[in-house]
Nucleic acid binder design. Structure first.
Length: 559
RNA sequence: AGGGCUGUCGCCAAGCGGUAAGGCACAGGACUUUGACUCCUGCAUUCGAAGGUUCAAAUCCUUCCAGCUCUGCCA
């Protein structure tokens, strides 16, 4: 693969430097991994971790593992294991190997025994509360456990009995013997193993003691031969403990190196898992695949191409500075891909009837219109043209007409002539209103000499409108997900009622060709933005539902 | 308060002693059977602040300031 212009080459300098420094001549030794806990679905933050680990392996010709970090049966569920794999595949990645951390439980246990034998681990009888009470705090040393100086033999015996299930949950822990006065709180005799009599989705009831993350993770990396363990900034304070374990265990000759990067944050969006969980639980959103969410499944349903997400992740950069990316940057990359794969079709979101008074009453002509947008790929995949009916009764967008046009408005208004996209030029000759003065219909005349493709009128018409023929129109429901209005900070303050704005357009009309749409198709609904068919949602009316993936940039909008 | 991390344009982000890349956003202009797309043009005398070293500093040194983060038998 060609990686010459890879966006990751223009960023993540500190990671590249570390890789080159550690691997020197043989960069293909690079081995990365993505270690999700199977306790939830992936979101854009996880996607960034997948992206960095997988892409780096590709760039250097190394390897990339997927590893389910299932060391805590209390918080995990097997149903996520498959979902996570599907989501990574959808994002466009394949792993060289798939492992489960739980497959290493025996090795981990052996390592723990080794630590005890070396005299650097002990069984502690203190409760969680007692440990917390003697832990000290920032700037204040903790006090050592009274069980800290048990003999190696006693520790070995107690640990074996912990494993054998002699003690109840929380009764004992295995702790590392490091330094209760360390300024790094993670080094204050951290717990290595806890007791949990809980069936594990992979190991069943074989174990009733489970390793803690800080102990398990470096071992998992070392066992798999991971050279560089890339993770979020929140683990930076854990690096000393990560290295401590790996250095204590002589069996690991090659030591993996942990490198931290800043995770992604976006403005106006809720990323926090616990906020999402809450909104799902309260029924505020559809579920984890709600199109308003930046979960992988949500973005997929919303119509974001995976390639656009990858592009965004790469071009947004990898650094150590905490940052918050503007949402419109994500949308930029989505549009960038959509404009090359979307077919431009005519859909009227807010229909306003237009009667063309000089058009033959019983006549319907079929216009063969080219899909005028879309890149080369789209041209191969879909018919180049489609038939669009035209007759005396059509609908236009209500916002495309103004009885008293404002200064820069050059669409339809009384007396004005505009072109109907792909059809004829029409001139507004009258307005029909109901008793309360609302416009219910526009009257117009068309000029047969202006037929699209063979216009002999010689006139140059500035305004162009999209339209849908009345008798053949396909009723659809459109769902517009507009600018998100919430983020984790506001959610933190308890405002999770109307998370993101969703605008339902129940009575939109589309050209007949859309009846054949599939969930893989991408459309540009003229001025309304990019849409895709929602294969999951069904409108109560039975109409097909289209999600607006992203709006268009527009320099004019009629209010 | 003790530790750690970070501070370059409105938002991301290059730069690693030789005189501020790029993208988004924004502002002009051209083009256009939609005002989209495309295409030009503009957009940090300055790198959190103040000192210092040097012929030369965003890059080295010193001090200060600001933001984030750490006291789960979670990951």
């Amino acid at each position: 693969m060609n990686t010459d212009n890879h966006p990751l080459l223009n960023t993540a300098t500190f990671i590249h430097n570390a890789i080159r420094q550690d691997l020197g001549a043989d960069l293909t030794r690079l081995h990365t991994r993505f270690p999700p806990e199977p306790g939830g679905f992936l979101h854009i933050g996880s996607a960034k971790a997948v992206y960095i680990n997988a892409e780096l392996a590709q760039i250097y010709g190394g390897k990339f593992n997927l590893r389910m970090d299932d060391t805590n049966p209390v918080k995990e569920d097997a149903r996520y294991v498959q979902a996570i794999q599907d989501e990574i595949h959808w994002l466009g990645y394949e792993w060289d190997a798939l492992y489960k951390a739980s497959d290493y439980f025996q090795i981990m246990y052996d390592c723990a025994v080794e630590l005890i034998e070396k005299g650097v681990a002990f069984v502690c009888d203190m409760s969680a509360e007692e440990i917390r009470a003697t832990f000290g705090g920032p700037g204040e040393a903790g006090t050592e456990s009274p069980y800290r100086n048990r003999s190696i033999e006693e520790n070995l015996d107690l640990f074996a009995r912990m494993k054998a299930g002699e003690f109840s949950d929380g009764a004992k822990t295995l702790r590392a013997k490091i330094d209760m006065a360390s300024p790094n709180l993670n080094m204050r005799d951290p717990v290595i193993y806890r007791i949990a009599h809980k069936e594990h989705s992979n190991t069943g009831n074989t174990w009733c003691i489970y390793p803690m993350y800080d102990f398990a993770h470096p071992l998992e990396d070392a066992i798999e031969g991971i050279t560089h363990s890339l993770c979020g900034l929140e683990f930076i304070d854990h690096r000393p403990i990560y290295e401590w374990y790996v250095n204590q265990l002589d069996r690991f000759v090659r030591k993996p190196r942990q490198i931290e990067f800043a995770e992604i944050n976006l403005t106006n969006t809720v990323l926090g898992k616990r906020h999402i969980r809450k909104m799902v639980a309260e029924g505020k959103i559809d579920g984890w695949d709600d199109p308003r969410l930046l979960t992988v499944s949500g973005m997929r349903r919303r119509g974001y191409p995976a390639a656009a997400i990858r592009d965004f992740l790469g071009n947004t950069g990898v650094a150590k500075a905490q940052s918050k990316v503007e949402f419109n940057l994500l949308e930029h990359y989505v549009r960038e891909h959509l404009k090359d794969m979307a077919r431009t079709v005519m859909v009227v979101l807010e229909p306003l009837k237009v009667t063309i008074t000089n058009y033959p009453d019983e006549q319907t002509e079929m216009l063969d219109l080219a899909y005028d947008s879309g890149g080369a790929a789209a041209e191969d995949a879909v018919p180049a043209t489609r038939a669009v009916p035209f007759s005396r009764a059509i609908y236009i967008e209500a916002t495309d007409f103004m009885e008293e046009p404002e200064k820069k408005f050059f669409r339809l208004a009384p007396g004005r002539e505009v072109r109907l996209k792909g059809a004829y030029a029409i001139t507004c000759t009258g307005v029909v209103k109901d008793e309360s003065g609302n416009i219910t219909e526009i009257l117009a005349t068309y000029d047969p000499a202006t037929r699209s493709g063979n216009d002999t009128s010689g006139r140059k018409i500035k305004g162009v409108l999209h339209w849908v023929e009345a008798a053949h129109a396909l009723p659809i429901e459109a769902r517009l997900y507009d600018t998100l209005v919430l983020d984790d900070d506001t959610a933190e303050n308890g405002i999770v009622d109307n998370p993101h704005s969703l605008n339902l357009i129940p009575n939109a009309l589309a050209e007949p060709a859309l009846a054949a749409a599939t969930a893989d198709d991408r459309f540009q609904f003229m001025r309304q933005g990019y849409f895709c068919l929602d294969e999951i949602a069904t409108a109560a009316s039975g109409k097909p539902v289209f999600n607006r993936t992203v709006g268009l940039k527009s320099s004019y909008s009629a209010k």
